[in-house]
Every structure is written in structure tokens, then in C-alpha cells.
């Protein structure tokens, strides 16, 4: 009888032990198999996004959602310390012809934001023409933005209710080539930056940047007011000394980030 009880107890202990081992087994320490390749796996869709004529309600035409976009700049304060940052309040995606370089009395966009195209899988057809109004820089310090800053970049003062697209107030980018980035899902963009700065005439400089695509999503899916959005982010850096800027308040290199959102409402 005693031996039988001992057998039962032994069996019980063995069962408890096995249960403990099985329950505690999480496989967390298992070594993962090595990746099949070191090359990043990039899956690009075949989306094509064009502005068309900006017809409201035409979901095949993509509208630049300027109020939800931004053009941010940053540079090292005094060329040595942390970042000094700001944004441009007025900008657009449009090429500006010589005839269009003038002042527009309007609070909205002075030109239609239609000078762009984005092909997700065919970057040879992708292009952008964009601009910023230099006198609308906003660093959060109105005294600086409407004061010494304007002298540093040689931009005219803001005239209320007027969009100023004259040469001395605009910096323009125009892409010349967009290629697929082999190391990321993004793109490498070659563009020409045109800005007069403190020079006698507008100066062109060719720079490279990176473009990333934020995938198309549906907002308010399942409702009558559903619409789609997608985003693009362009990053590049340029040397402000190329444009005659001499102030030591900021570093030579200025980094610009353009966050562009589009919808098909």
C-alpha cells in the first residue's frame, strides 16, 4: 500500500514537472534563422497620382492639401549649437513662369498646384515644381521673422493679403531626375534649386534629395464621404552661402523637409 502511494506521488511529481516545463516553454530564446538575403525587400505598388484639372469630386484627380502640408527648414544656430528651425507659411507646387513672377492680391494659393506627377513604380515620369515665399518664414519669433531675418535672406516685407512671387521672394525647386532608391522603398531625387538670396540675380544649384511615399489610405471608409489620401516627403540640404548669405547666425548647411499631402476629394 505504501509502495503504491509512493508510485502515485512519483507519477504526480513527474506530471507536474512535465506540465511546468511545457507551460514555461516560450521559444523566446530560439535563434531566428538568418535572413535569406541582406538586400532589403522592397515592394512598390503601381499607383499613379496626377493632379488633372483639380475638378472637385473627381476621385481620379489628386488635390494638393496645402493647409495640411508644411515646408520646414533647420540649420545649426551660430553654426555650432543646436538646431534653429522654422517653416514657410506660403508655398505651392507649381512652376512659375517669368510672367507669373508678380504679386497676387489673394489669401489663397496664387497659382494652381498642378505642376507635379507621381508614379509609384515608374519614377522617370515623376516630377515636381515647387516654391516657397521666403518672407513667410516662421520661427515663432515675429520680431525676428519680420525683422532681421528678412535682411539675412534679402526678402521683401510681407504685404498683408498679398502673395508675393517676385524673384527676390521665391525659392524654387524643379526636379530633373527621380530614380528608385535601391536601399529603401523611397526615391532619390535630383533637382535644381533656384533662389536669388543676396545675389544680384537668381542662382541655380543642383542638389540631391530623398523622396518617400506614404501609402494611399482611405479616410472615413464605408461612409458616403469617404476619400483617399497619400503623402510625399522630400528631404534635401543646400549650402546657403551659395546664395550670398553671410550671416553667422546659422550654419552653411540648411536642411529642408517638405511634407506634402494630397487627397482626391
Amino acid at each position: 500500500m505504501k509502495q503504491r502511494s509512493e508510485k502515485i506521488l512519483l507519477a504526480l511529481l513527474v506530471i507536474i514537472s512535465i506540465t511546468g516545463y511545457i507551460t514555461s516553454c516560450t521559444h523566446e530564446n530560439q535563434v531566428l534563422p538568418p535572413p535569406a538575403t541582406n538586400t532589403p525587400v522592397i515592394n512598390r505598388g503601381s499607383g499613379v497620382f496626377l493632379p488633372g484639372t483639380l475638378t472637385v469630386g473627381d476621385t481620379s484627380q489628386w488635390k494638393f492639401d496645402q493647409v495640411h502640408c508644411s515646408v520646414l527648414w533647420s540649420g545649426n544656430y551660430l553654426g555650432a549649437a543646436g538646431l534653429l528651425t522654422g517653416r514657410f507659411n506660403a508655398f505651392g507646387i507649381s512652376s512659375i513662369s517669368t510672367a507669373q513672377k508678380m504679386q497676387y492680391v489673394t489669401s489663397g494659393q496664387p497659382l494652381k498646384d498642378t505642376s507635379w506627377a507621381f508614379y509609384e513604380n515608374d519614377p522617370t515620369k515623376t516630377y515636381f515644381n515647387g516654391y516657397v515665399q521666403m518672407n513667410t518664414s516662421n520661427t515663432g519669433e515675429p520680431g525676428r521673422d519680420g525683422g532681421c531675418y528678412l535682411g539675412y535672406v534679402s526678402a521683401p516685407k510681407i504685404i498683408s493679403g498679398t502673395q508675393n512671387l517676385i524673384d527676390s521672394n521665391i525659392a524654387v525647386i524643379k526636379t530633373t531626375q527621380v530614380v528608385l532608391d535601391p536601399n529603401s522603398p523611397g526615391y532619390i531625387v535630383t533637382m535644381v534649386l533656384t533662389w536669388k538670396g543676396l545675389l544680384a540675380a537668381p542662382h541655380d544649384t543642383t542638389i540631391n534629395g530623398t523622396l518617400s511615399y506614404v501609402k494611399r489610405e482611405t479616410v472615413g471608409a464605408g461612409t458616403a464621404s469617404a476619400y483617399d489620401v497619400f503623402g510625399l516627403q522630400l528631404n534635401f540640404t543646400f549650402n546657403c552661402r551659395s546664395f550670398g548669405m553671410t550671416t553667422t547666425e546659422i550654419s552653411d548647411a540648411i536642411t529642408v523637409q517638405c511634407n506634402m499631402n494630397f487627397n482626391n476629394k
Binding site: I16, T19, G20, T23, S24, C25, T26
Partner: peptide, 18 residues
């Protein structure tokens, strides 16, 4: 072990240590 089964403990590492 009982705490793990009864759901009183969500941390399986304790039982793993044990």
C-alpha cells in the same frame, strides 16, 4: 504553475525561471 494556469500571472518568465 497554478498562477500561470489560473491566469493570475501573465508573466511566463517567472515560471520559466522556476
Amino acid at each position: 504553475l497554478f498562477f500561470q494556469f489560473a491566469g493570475f500571472s501573465q508573466n511566463r518568465d517567472i515560471l520559466k525561471n522556476d
